[in-house]
Design a protein around this nucleic acid. Sequence first.
DNA 1: CTGCGGTCCTGAAGGC
DNA 2: TGCCTTCAGGACCGCA
Length: 284
Amino acid sequence: MPELPEVETIKRYLDKAIIGQKVLGIKILSKKQFPGNPKDVIDEKITAVYRRGKNLIIELSGNKALLCHLKLTGQFIWWPGKNKAVFKKPIPFNGQELPGKTTRVIIKLSKGNLFFNDLRKFGWIKILTNSEKQLTDNLAKLGPEPFSKDFNNAYLQNIFLKTSKPIKLVLLDQEKIAGIGNIYANEALFLAKINPQKPAKNLKPDDIQRLRKAVLRVLEQGIKYGGSSASDEAYIRPDASQGSYQQHFKVYQKQGQKCPRCKNPIKRVDLGGRGTFFCPKCQN
DNA sequence: CTGCGGTCCTGAAGGC
DNA sequence: TGCCTTCAGGACCGCA
């Protein structure tokens, strides 16, 4: 699922691929995922691409923007080049077909087409016509970025002390920390040797220090490997290639397998309705 | 305030 | 073989 490292990978790719291009047309195949009026952005130029938490923002001229959330199975695929038939007849691209069965929106730019694919239809793209204000409003509730100076021991200590929720649910709370999803929460807690069920307020300063470093470490690794394309996941990079961080999972979806640290079997429990994987022996 | 459970959606996987 | 049920999950919403 696209979490911070996956969205960051997409952001960096699109940064190089689509800046400066003009929006020539938008083909909407799933209306509820693109509720806006394409006319509002036709002829606007892409001035920047950025990420905030798991949100992707495509900034446009005229104080406009596209605010995108990939949710569970969203993809952006960039098909460079001009092909008038691309909206009609599928073309092969790196093992994909474009448009494919899951294509929901096609954004036609000056030098190619940007495909928004989403198997489960949870993702969306919103048009912002007064982006300066609307971005502030839409993103106001998000907690600090893990790679910012606001993500420090004092901040974490402060938010953890206020709740007895399992620490993993606090990591997943976008209003507390922006960008962490199920995979990286599981992996960070393993690295920090903390039980995901442990009440947040019970974390000692030493635990918090280790957890902060572990979060940064797994997110950095995730970005380094271009995100994770696990077996049941739809995430791919904009050139349709897979990320490889899944090859470095220590606990995620590894229930029953041996803990890489202590050889005890990895356990799976349900936490907040999500699969939670950890080693009951060395994560305390 | 917390903590549930339902909702959206689809394809894969399991049961019989 | 084939139909049916169950499951996965980010964010949000309503309810107790």
